[in-house]
Every structure is written in structure tokens, then in C-alpha cells.
Write a protein that binds this DNA or RNA. Structure first.
Length: 535
RNA sequence: GCGGGUGUAGUUCAAUGGUAGAACGAAAGCUUCCCAAGCUUUAGGCGAGGGUUCGAUUCCCUUCACCCGCUCCA
């Protein structure tokens, strides 16, 4: 499927529009149209229903180590700035980048490593980029190439000092960039603010700077104690939240896949440290299955465990659920959801001050004065098990899903072109959005076969009665075949048609979107029939 | 942020230094007893700003957006 066809259908049928389009659009922001808003809401509702309100607290679910509880939360987008300092976002999101004028490459300032080296009477700082697995080797190769030397003469290179970061240099004059052939091609470090800044108060100055949240998760962590104190939940339990987040992506790309304003569906699941590994595996497998149950093709979906090098050391595991989006090259997948084992990093950071993830066991990161770099709340966020009497800081499993990415995946998955006969029996290309009935924007469309003989009246009655339970649509205009095809493009799974026989025996036909099959049911049974079909 | 490409109606496209056409789609009506192509009618557009010119949708500059590659993706 070509992506342009889907993008054009989304615009044409009102799934997705570019934000602020009449002003020329704005990069990285997208609006959901009349059909899109229903689709996305259905996805979010299905998630909330399946994970939270529909959750059975009493029994042990298949694959789960024990029964558990689920509850919800809805917190603000703007939070106390200290939240982002302790979460680590403040430091991580203020990356300095340098660009190479020669290679056009861009590098994280602090991740370029290099060594001073002298040969042929010239001293340079040879470097390797952050993606280099063998920086020492790459740096030597760079140096040899620059000096025009062969590798057998490598011992003529006079190294001065150990591998060090570019950040230790005052000037880039003598720097040989990772992919450059000449010296001094790097620009000055420039700050990239990956968090959106805003100002609190009409007169706010620098001291009143706040941030739009880059993830919903932190709101759950900072409310952990509130939820425990107010809701009688016991570990293990999860807190779910759906809401907007904001990231100043450097390059928004691929339709809505990488947007600057986006919506997340996140769970923070709190459990005992001893059982966290099992819970991690439980959530990973359960969430993977969920996408398949909602209609994503198993063959286009992978569960990718992060390699040990990708993991934060405090994490036992992180897995991505990834989908083979059509805009990606063959064999590549895009992340829909990440399931991360986060240990006690977050709760402890909000208690004690931002932890240094590179220490083991983790200790609070200190500044030059030996004080915490970012102070925590000082509040006790540990949990006491009333039955065992044990007190501990729970470990956290975080299934973090992108609502917009899920919506995009379902749109891509649904887009189908097949062949259907026209009124003369000739086969015609038919565009069908094959959404799972649960997420289809419109559940059913009701038509009078022709606009006379009492059919519209009966069809309208049916429309009104079904409207109480579902988003249904009524259409009496034009040829019925045209009306069917219009609903196919909207992804409506069922079309109900009132015909001549209906006037005699009060039955109507139901037409299935994917099979084109039709069968008759009593008009009075439509609600129960649809309930069966939609699930 | 860099390089390349593209911006004309809701969509897909055409033409032109003298203010734009088509197809499909949409709307209204007619017809129609089951899968978009029957009839009539209607609405709708040169991404934005500036310049050159008597005159710019067309040429030039800037900008914005989209696509591809690089970069980035905590």
C-alpha cells in the first residue's frame, strides 16, 4: 500500500488533517477530523476498558503471577518544574548538538569522543561519533587517513592523553570531525530544547518557566502516594493515564508517526521487587497480544527485546512492540509501545533526588559541591504491605503506548483495495477500511433501498433506536451501491437496508463490509444482533 | 538542521507572462427493489509574502508545508 493513498483518503474522508492548514500548516502537528476523532476515541476507550475498567481484580489472569488491581488518573500537562529535573528529562532534553559543515552530520556534543594525536609535525583532535562501537579503532583510522599514512605505520602516531569528550575542548579549530576529511568543520554547540517551555503567570520571567510534559508517566509517579492513600489499592496494582504529551522533535516525519504534540496511553504498574521480572514478562506479552486482538496483522507486528547495551542498567528489560508501517523500508518497524522495567528509579528519584542511572546500586547524582544535582521531594514514597509488614519501594513496569501511533497503525492496517462488482456485474476496485468493529468510527449505516413506499420512515425508526447504543449513520440519497461504497471507505462494518420485503415482514438485510454477504434479520432483533457482531 | 524534489478545486491531474480546465468526489432534484460510471443543476482552486513587469498561477527572491535521503528519535 502506498502511503500517499492513505494520506489522501484520510484528508478526503475526514480522518486526519494537517493542523492550521489554512495558514499553510505547522510542522509536526495534526488534527483528527470527524471520522478520525471517533476512531482514535474508540482506540483509547478500548484500551481503557480492557486495561482499567474492565479489569478483573479478583482472579488471576492468564499469564499473570497473581491477581492485581487497576485504577486510573488524569493529571495536568504542566507540573512543578522539579518533576522534570528528578525524572531526568531536564538534563537529557537539553542536549547540545554540533553540526559538521563538511559531512552535514549532526552529533550530540557530549557524545563525540576523541584523542589528541600528533604526526608529521601537526597535532589534531581525532574523533568518533556516538554510534561508534569501537571508538579507539575509528579514531585511529580517522587519524591515519588525515595524515595520509598506512595502518602499518600506526606506531608513528603520537597519542597525547586518553579518550576524552569533545566537551573538554575550548576550540574546534584542530578537531577532525567523525566523518570529515578536514579540520575545524564542526559548528559551535547549539542547544536543542526537546521540552516545550512555557511561562506561568502573565508577568512570568525566567524563574517562572515551566514545561509541557514530555510524557504522562511522571504524573503517575508523583501521585503514587495519593492513589495509595485514597483508593485502598494494594501492591501489585497499576495506574493508567491517557493524555497529551509534547516533545520538540528535531525532525517530525512520516505523517503522524513523529508528532510534536501527541497522546499517550500509559500504565505504571507497581509491584514487589522480587516479582518484577515476572510482571514485566506478563505485561510485555499481554500488550503484544492486545494489538493483535484489535486487528493488527501478526506478521507485521514484532516484539523486540532491547539488547543489554540499550538498557539502562537498573532495568531488567525493555521491549518494544513495533509495527511494519508502510512508510518504512522493507524489514524495518516503527515503535507502537514500549514496555520498560524501570526498577525503583522513578519513585526513589522523586523521594531522594535524581538518581544517577550509571551507579550501582543507584545513588543520588551530585553536583560539584557534593549536593544533590536535583533535589527530590523528601516525601516517603515507599509502600508498606499491611499483611507481611514489609516496607519497600515498589518496582515499576511501564507499558507506554502511543495513541496516535496506534491509530496510524490501525489506519494502515485497515486500508484495503479489493474488487467488487458494479451494477452491471463488472469488477471494480473498491477501497475498504477494514477496521475491527470495536474501533470502527461508524458501527452501522441504515439505508432505505429506495426513497419511497414507506422505506425511509422505517429506516429512520431503526436509525433512532440504534443511535441510543452506537454511532450509526442514515443515508437515503442516490443509488444504494454508491451508499455502500461510501461506507466501505469510512470503514463502517455493517449496512442495514430496508427494502420491499421489510414492509411485509419487518425484516431487514445486514450487509457485511468485508465479505459483501447479506442476511435478513428481524428489525426488532437488530440491537442484539449488532451487539453480537460488534462485541 | 543539511541536501534533493514537490506545492493548481475535497482528491488525482492539465494548461498558460494577458487572472485557469478535466475526471472523480461533494451538494440539490429526478430516476432507481441491492453494490460507485442514468439524467438535470450548482458550488469550489493557483500555499503565503515580496520583487521584476503595463500585467505574474507562470520568471526571480524569501518563507511555510509535504515527500525522499542524512541527522535525530531521551
Amino acid at each position: 500500500m502506498e502511503m500517499e493513498k492513505l494520506v489522501s483518503l484520510c484528508k478526503r474522508r475526514g480522518f486526519l488533517f494537517q493542523s492550521s492548514e489554512i495558514y499553510g500548516g505547522i510542522n509536526g502537528f495534526w488534527d483528527y477530523g470527524p471520522l478520525g476523532v471517533e476512531l482514535k476515541r474508540n482506540i483509547k476507550d478500548a484500551w481503557w476498558r480492557d486495561m482499567v475498567t474492565g479489569h478483573d481484580d479478583l482472579d488471576t489472569l492468564p499469564g499473570a503471577p497473581s491477581p492485581f488491581e487497576m485504577t486510573g488518573l488524569d493529571c495536568t500537562i504542566i507540573m512543578h518544574p522539579q518533576v522534570w529535573k528528578c525524572s531526568g528529562h531536564y538534563d537529557l532534553f537539553h542536549d547540545y548538538m554540533v553540526d559538521c559543515r563538511e559531512s552535514k552530520g549532526r552529533y550530540r556534543y557530549d557524545q563525540i569522543k576523541g584523542r589528541w594525536v600528533e604526526a608529521k609535525g601537526k597535532k589534531i583532535f581525532a574523533t568518533a561519533g556516538s554510534n561508534s562501537e569501537t571508538p579507539e579503532v575509528d579514531i585511529e583510522r580517522q587519524a591515519l587517513k588525515f595524515f595520509g599514512m598506512r595502518s602499518k605505520n600506526a606506531d608513528e602516531l603520537k597519542w597525547d592523553g586518553p579518550l576524552t569528550s569533545l566537551t573538554t575542548l575550548d576550540s574546534f579549530e584542530e578537531v577532525l570531525a567523525p566523518d570529515a576529511k578536514s579540520l575545524g568543520t564542526l559548528t559551535e554547540p547549539r542547544e536543542f530544547n526537546l521540552m516545550f517551555k512555557t511561562t506561568i503567570g502573565a508577568l512570568g520571567g525566567e524563574a517562572d518557566t515551566a514545561f509541557l510534559r514530555p510524557e504522562t508517566a511522571q504524573g503517575i509517579f508523583v501521585n503514587f502516594k495519593n492513589v495509595v492513600d485514597s483508593s485502598r489499592v494494594r501492591v501489585p496494582f497499576g495506574i493508567a493515564q491517557v493524555g497529551k504529551s509534547f516533545r520538540n522533535e528535531i525532525t517530525p516525519r512520516n505523517f503522524t508517526f513523529r508528532s510534536r504534540e501527541f497522546e499517550q496511553m500509559e500504565i505504571e504498574f507497581f509491584c514487589h521487587p522480587d516479582s518484577s521480572q515476572k510482571w514485566y514478562m506478563y505485561w510485555r506479552d499481554r500488550r503484544y497480544k492486545w494489538y493483535q486482538e484489535m486487528g493488527l496483522d501478526e506478521k507485521k507486528l514484532i516484539l523486540r527485546e532491547h539488547t543489554p547495551e540499550e538498557l539502562a542498567h537498573y532495568s531488567i528489560g525493555t521491549a518494544d512492540i513495533e509495527y511494519a508501517f508502510p512508510f518504512l523500508p522493507e524489514g524495518e518497524y516503527g515503535e507502537l509501545e514500549g514496555i520498560a522495567h524501570r526498577g525503583d528509579f522513578d519513585l526513589r528519584s522523586h523521594m531522594e533526588g535524581k538518581l544517577d542511572p550509571d551507579t550501582k546500586p543507584m545513588t543520588v547524582e551530585l553536583n560539584e559541591d557534593g549536593k544533590p544535582k536535583h533535589r527530590g521531594s523528601g516525601k516517603d514514597l515507599s509502600y508498606r504491605d499491611d499483611i507481611t509488614g514489609e516496607r519497600f519501594v515498589p518496582h515499576v513496569i511501564e507499558p507506554s503506548a502511543g495513541a496516535d501511533r496506534a491509530t496510524l497503525a490501525f489506519l494502515c492496517e485497515a486500508y484495503t483495495e479489493d474488487e467488487a462488482p458494479d451494477d452491471k456485474g463488472n469488477m471494480q476496485t473498491r477501497v475498504v477500511m477494514k477496521f475491527h468493529p470495536r474501533i470502527a468510527p461508524v458501527k452501522a449505516s441504515i439505508f432505505p433501498l429506495v426513497k419511497k413506499d414507506g422505506m425511509p420512515e422505517m429506516a429512520k425508526d431503526i436509525y433512532r433506536s440504534l443511535k441510543k447504543d452506537w454511532n450509526v449513520f442514515y443515508d437515503e440519497k442516490g443509488a444504494v451501491g454508491r451508499r455502500y461504497r461510501r461506507q466501505d471507505e469510512a470503514g463502517t462494518p455493517f449496512c442495514i437496508t430496508v427494502d420491499g420485503q421489510s414492509m411485509q415482514d419487518q425484516t431487514v438485510t445486514i450487509r457485511h463490509r468485508d465479505t459483501l454477504e447479506q442476511w435478513r434479520v428481524k428489525a426488532d432483533d437488530l440491537t442484539s444482533e449488532l451487539r453480537k457482531l460488534i462485541g
